[in-house]
Write a protein that binds this DNA or RNA. Structure first.
Lengths: 343, 343
DNA sequence: AATAGTATTGCAAACGTTTTCAGAAAAACC
DNA sequence: GGTTTTTCTGAAAACGTTTGCAATACTATT
């Protein structure tokens, strides 16, 4: 019968199996070192006593904690859904459990949660993007823990990074509309402070437009948080007041969804009356109706690679070398963008 | 200068501050017990050495691990996004860090990840729903760890639960279409095996329809995984082949999104040609265009309450009493449902 | 000035593992 | 059958904390 496992430890199991604690430990960690007969005996005792090994004790001894920390801005909407899911799946397959923390786009909060993860002695850390506080960078540098910045790619990053070039993403989005003949273009972006992804995209969009000789009036630069509702109301105002617009570039697909929703609500036809392009290609963007034109950022690939990179670094004796991998973005022209109407 | 913190422990800090390890520990855990002057001195030493406290050692001593485990089927799409986010926010506010695990709707995998969380000595566990393997229930019973099943409510649950009555949700969805005069209704649901939420909804829908004298032919019962793409292709087939349909009840909002997308692709007008209703009211459902008619399951409330309940149970000396809280569902009739066309 | 009480600190045991080292038993060799 | 390997197992130290207890240094009281 299963005992109450209030304090079932390795010694209890050892006694039940008539062996020493060391042997029980070996059964769990190096079964090949123990006699098959003993193995069976111990395994049975483990099952009978309902023993659950204590990772904390293992961690304290200096072994791995078998956890990976992941700090993301938010898990709301599907913004980081694919990234978290694929990172988690990869980590789990390799024997690691995910310690997840969110900071709501607040870098001071990010420092605090990062510290917590380190207190738990995670074996590796993944962050989103490359904008982090000095405190954060210093903390990471002072710890001997592998780190990777997922999502962003930058060839001069202070830490390893696996992700896409956000400037390129912005450029592709802008060029797409330009190539379709749009010249009256509005921009709907989130705050770019403390957010290298949004900033890179926006800057690249502006550069591309400027180079094409287009100036975006201040009234056509709209701020929106990462929320469909927010984006929708912001775009309703924009589209109602500024009829001359033919194109809309959105900071990400969630904002684009809000934009589309507002356009449809105003009776505008997509893409005849207005073209909308997002960035991200989140799960579902391809299957909406109309299908969203967007720039794909391969979230799943990034998640998998970030997970693998961390585990490899943890297992290998690797010197703390900085690694940078660029995951290519790709324009996905779909149904929400088309030729600009003649002025 | 910050030292390499390879092995900065409490003794290192103690030496740096000229006090004993016990005092350092007290500074971190019971600052009110230490002399203000000493406190300052130690805090400075902590900062100077770059000390990060080791939760594993703390945990092993028998104190809290300060982690809460959350086992969800998936973090893809926004299905559990609000739930996870609000649970996490609540836990974080109360000083706990989230250990997240997913099982992809596979209850054997759920058992395995649950075990891992227990190995890490999480102070509390939240699961989704009430369908779990016997192994899982036994494991939970054998551990002295607070548990809560979030998402589902059932008055005869074996463990504490905080969630909504899925049967009621299903009933509301069905009655909504019935009250609008629909009689030719199709059902698009995920596999109901091992999924009490989907099963409860589907059963209640069928009961309601039967009571109204409506039979749903087998061809109008469609299976779809929880993915927009999947639901869309399933519904394309359904809608193309069975023109007589006027209403569609979907297992959740993600499936409903796919259904809507397919209907629009076929040129059907919503709600004139067909009414579609989802279940869940995920973030974004209200702001799509057309806005999705659905049954709201207050994910955020559930997440917050589940988090609070766990923490309260952990802190209190509470006997392991079963608590059940029902979070009311509510019909949200919006733009995707309307009067049935005359036959 | 002596006493009682309070505030502060340090010592050392305990938590549950893993792993090194050494010893015992079994197997292989001659 | 004796020696040398090889395989297997156990004892004990170590990991980094927390906390009960005891000791010390103050403060207040008489």
């Amino acid at each position: 019968m299963k005992k109450q496992s209030y304090n079932i430890d390795i010694f209890t199991v050892a006694k039940a199996a008539g062996v020493s604690a060391a042997t029980v430990s070996r059964v769990m960690n190096h079964p090949e070192l123990v006699n098959p007969t003993t193995l069976k005996k111990v395994e049975k005792a483990i099952r009978r006593t309902g023993y659950v090994r204590n990772r904390a004790a293992q961690t304290i001894h200096g072994r791995r904690s078998a956890t990976l920390g992941f700090v993301v801005p938010t898990v709301n909407y599907s913004i980081f859904a694919e990234l978290v899911q694929s990172f988690n799946d990869t980590a789990a397959d390799l024997g690691f459990t995910l310690l997840l923390a969110t900071h709501g786009y607040d870098l001071r909060a990010e420092y605090r949660v990062l510290r917590k993860l380190l207190e738990h002695r995670v074996d590796g850390i993944a962050l989103v993007g490359l904008d982090h506080s000095d405190d954060t960078y210093q903390l990471l540098a002072s710890q001997a823990v592998p780190v990777v910045a997922a999502w962003s790619y930058c060839e001069t990053s202070r830490i390893s990074c696996i992700g896409s070039d956000n400037r390129e993403a912005g450029r592709l989005a802008a060029q797409h509309l330009l190539s379709l003949g749009h010249r009256r273009i509005a921009l709907v972006f989130p705050p770019t402070h403390d957010n290298d992804r949004a900033r890179g995209r926006l800057e690249a969009v502006e550069t591309a437009l400027t180079e094409a000789g287009i100036e975006v009036p201040a009234a056509w630069r709209v701020l929106s948080l990462y929320s469909v509702a927010h984006a929708k109301s912001a775009c309703l105002t924009l589209l109602r007041e500024h009829q001359g617009l033919t194109g809309l570039i959105c900071g990400n697909d969630i904002i684009a969804q809000g934009a589309i929703s507002s356009a449809m609500e105003l009776g505008l036809r997509l893409p005849q009356d207005i073209s909308i392009v997002g960035i991200g290609d989140f799960a579902g963007s391809a299957d909406m109706h109309p299908a969203l034109s967007t720039v794909q950022i391969p979230a799943q690939q990034i998640g998998v690679q970030a997970g693998q990179y961390l585990v490899e670094t943890i297992l290998g004796l690797d010197p703390r070398k900085i690694v940078r991998r660029k995951i290519e973005v790709a324009l996905k022209p779909r149904a929400t963008s088309g030729r600009a109407v003649a002025d």
